[in-house]
């Protein structure tokens, strides 16, 4: 049986930018190769200027590679039809402020070939999905940053793409909105949609991604399954609820009797500040 076509396949991508006549060109991406299988959530992380956005733009055909190739579901990303199945949310999107939320989604839907009843239904569905049903009739000029990010996500999903590319999707969004976007990414994964996420918010990437690539100086320096990359091989973690002092004492003694084993750290695990914030402001548990 043949291998399924990867959602994203980048091979030896190099991107140089011309600076001035005398100086050498600036290499933003240097021989980058990566493959994202269909249905994965892939996080590309790296410091500012490491080449994340350039990689995304090359993948979307917004700029031509100096050398190498990018393919989306097997189609060359420089060809228009490669974008039939792609939704993209750029960093800090502004959109057309003169349009309402509904008009914005209708505009992008029409560009993707949606029309009639199917478009109307899709707009209603998306506004509900991103929690903007009540604000759909308002112009984007009056939207907050978080609302703009959510309408941006909605436009990215308008044609039910099989691949969603998100560039810093939670930049400038408050913790509640950020959690909403995280939940949405997980919901997309559950529906089998591939997500390619660029971010430097490492905690968020850790929460949602299956695979991670670390980009530095335009090169992939580490890549693999998140669990494999961040697990500490020679340590085991057990978290016990309502453990009495007696039980802790017995476990400690048991560990002491085992040759080579030692307790590295014990105590009460801490919640995260984000979880505390969400519980305080929304009254809901902030997730696992």
């Amino acid at each position: 049986m043949s291998e399924p076509v990867p959602a994203v396949e980048i091979r030896h991508l190099v991107k140089d930018f011309r600076t001035s006549f005398r100086r050498r060109p600036l290499r933003a991406v240097d021989d980058l190769s990566l493959t994202i299988r269909a249905g994965e959530v892939y996080g590309l992380i790296g410091p500012n200027g490491s080449g994340k956005s350039t990689t995304m733009k090359a993948l979307l055909g917004l700029m031509a590679p100096t050398s190498g190739s990018c393919r989306i579901f097997g189609k060359d990303s420089l060809k228009v039809d490669s974008r039939d199945e792609v939704g993209f949310l750029p960093e800090n999107p502004y959109f057309h402020k003169h349009l309402t939320g509904v008009e914005t989604l209708r505009f992008y839907g029409r560009l993707c070939g949606l029309r009639g009843r199917a478009l109307d239904d899709r707009v209603v569905e998306l506004l509900d999905l991103v929690g903007l049903t009540d604000a759909g009739g308002r112009r984007l000029a009056g939207y907050s940053k978080g609302m703009l990010q959510r309408i941006g996500l909605a436009q990215a999903l308008v044609q039910e793409p099989r691949l969603v590319i998100l560039d810093e999707p939670t930049a400038g969004v408050d913790p509640v909105g950020s959690r909403g976007i995280r939940d949405l990414i997980l919901a997309l994964r559950d529906r089998g949609i591939t997500v390619f996420l660029c971010s430097h918010l490492l905690e968020q990437v850790q929460e949602v991604c299956d695979h991670v690539g670390i980009l530095c100086g335009g090169r992939i320096v580490r890549e693999g399954r998140l669990d494999d990359l961040i697990s500490i091989e020679d340590q085991t973690e057990i978290v016990i609820r309502r453990a009495g002092a007696d039980l802790v004492e017995r476990i400690t003694a048991l560990v002491g009797e085992s040759p080579g084993a030692s307790i590295v750290r014990s105590g009460r695990p801490r919640t995260t500040l984000e979880r505390l914030f969400l519980e305080t402001t929304t009254g809901k548990e902030g997730g696992a």
Binding site: R110, G113, R115, G116, A118, R162
Partner: peptide
């Protein structure tokens, strides 16, 4: 996998896209 094409969706032609962008520019 969500590979189905939703009802009412088909790749719009050049004319439809140009008219959509044109109407949008006019509104803007």
């Amino acid at each position: 996998m969500n590979a189905h094409v939703p009802a009412g969706k088909r790749r719009g032609g050049h004319v439809v896209r140009i008219l959509t962008i044109g109407a949008h520019a006019f509104t803007q």
